[in-house]
Write a protein that binds this DNA or RNA. Structure first.
Lengths: 238, 238
DNA sequence: TCAAAAGTGTTCCGAATACACCCATGA
DNA sequence: TCATGGGTGTATTCGGAACACTTTTGA
């Protein structure tokens, strides 16, 4: 290993600070939830899969750091991103005392597959079903577990599920998403009643194309209306 | 300012890492929620009130750091403590790039007032009603705001309110606590029905002493039973 | 005997659940 | 014409909300 110049000095020891991102996408074709992993090209854990992430730069805020890492490592921009949890077990990184701030991102699988083809800078990245993830580097399994719990809990009382769907979606797709996340079958009629009663889905008057059966209506999530209703004390529940 | 020896050197710049704790207690006498603040004795913000907190030590995990600061600055031990949010805006501390991991703690006001008298090491600390907090040092107002939102949201679907009460409490006290936290009046009969129906409150057969009216039954929270029921899919709601 | 809080039931309404068949479309 | 999913209504049950008076106790 080459000798490094150590020129950033402080009166007290400091842990290193990183961010790590759990990127979720719903795979409606396969009926499962996917997470984006990156294959590590350097030690430690070279060759192991890990969450996209890296060091927080000097004078960089945490969320911008997470967004920068998503852009650099996965070609992702303008995604839903929320802070999750911060881990600082001094044994979590063999290089020394590292503190990492975990984030989770929600993206639409179709959007990202296009970008992945275009963006040649991306390192070796791949989607894994969350039920079938290899052993990850560092304590990234733990971060993924925390992210899954958060997503499953939050999707029921915050309208974040829409971030995982295309802009236009059918009610069946929405239902399928909830079945994936909540891990149980839902009655179609009851689900539709509840979803439409919320008043935040708008019928775009468009219908599905290229399906080998009756084409379904396409809806979109009316974010502006949701914010209004939220201001007036409305509580999303699905 | 004296010249400092800067002997901890790294190949890349690192932000400093701290923890800050929002300590809540319910004041049933006054019918409000209190937060514990410490008067700063050093610059920056000397003389301003701030949350208890401080640097994370070398090879120290985050939660232990928070507990150590609570012990050193406020004489508090064995309290309910949970991570809240991590702030890293590079402008949040005039001394440079600081990242702070926020925690919130829930304590019983009576317990702590005893300890405060005994522990002479404690710096100048005081309880403030959360509705009447002075301007705080750093971005501690923001951390307090996040903690309040979290507490108010979480108390409804997790049995954490009991941490703010004495071990034995009356149903009226429990109701008063929820009225404080949810900021609204609750119907007595409905509240009692719901609380008892949960099956996690045990009637201790004891009654209040030294009250100038009919003495109420004392209950306690059955934590063991709650954990059992939680395992079996029970969802707390109050 | 008064003040203060403890304690107690019933009705009503809205939401959650359970449940099965016909319709439209493209292959 | 068939396979595939789209789309629809009703009855029941359960929990949430509204609502007022009697009881106990110590001062």
């Amino acid at each position: 290993m080459s000798r490094q110049i150590e020129e950033f000095c402080y009166p007290h020891p400091r842990p290193a600070v990183t961010v790590d991102c759990v990127v979720f996408a719903a795979d409606l074709e396969q009926g499962d939830l996917k997470v984006l992993l990156i294959e590590r090209g350097t030690e430690p854990f070279r060759g192991r899969w890990a969450l996209p992430g890296g060091h927080v730069l000097e004078h960089e805020d945490l969320e911008p750091a997470a967004r920068r890492e998503l852009r650099e490592e996965a070609g992702l921009e303008n995604v839903f991103l929320e802070q999750l949890y911060t881990l600082g077990n001094p044994g979590r990184d063999p290089r020394g005392h590292y503190v990492t701030v975990g984030y989770y991102a929600l993206v639409n699988l179709l959007d990202f597959q296009v970008q992945a083809d275009v963006d040649s800078d991306a390192r070796d990245a791949a989607w894994f079903a969350v039920t079938d993830v290899p052993e990850l580097a560092f304590d990234h399994d733990r971060i993924l577990e925390i992210a899954l719990d958060r997503l499953k809990g939050k999707v029921r009382y915050q309208p974040i599920g829409f971030e995982l769907l295309p802009p236009l979606f059918t009610l069946s797709q929405l239902q399928q998403l909830y079945e994936i996340l909540l891990e149980r079958k839902i009655d179609k009629r009851n689900f539709r009643k509840k979803a439409l009663r919320l008043g935040i889905l708008v019928d775009t008057q468009e219908i599905q194309k290229d399906v080998a059966h009756r084409a379904a209506r396409l809806y979109r999530f009316d974010r502006a209306r949701y914010r209004e209703m939220e201001r007036d004390g409305f509580n999303f529940q699905l």
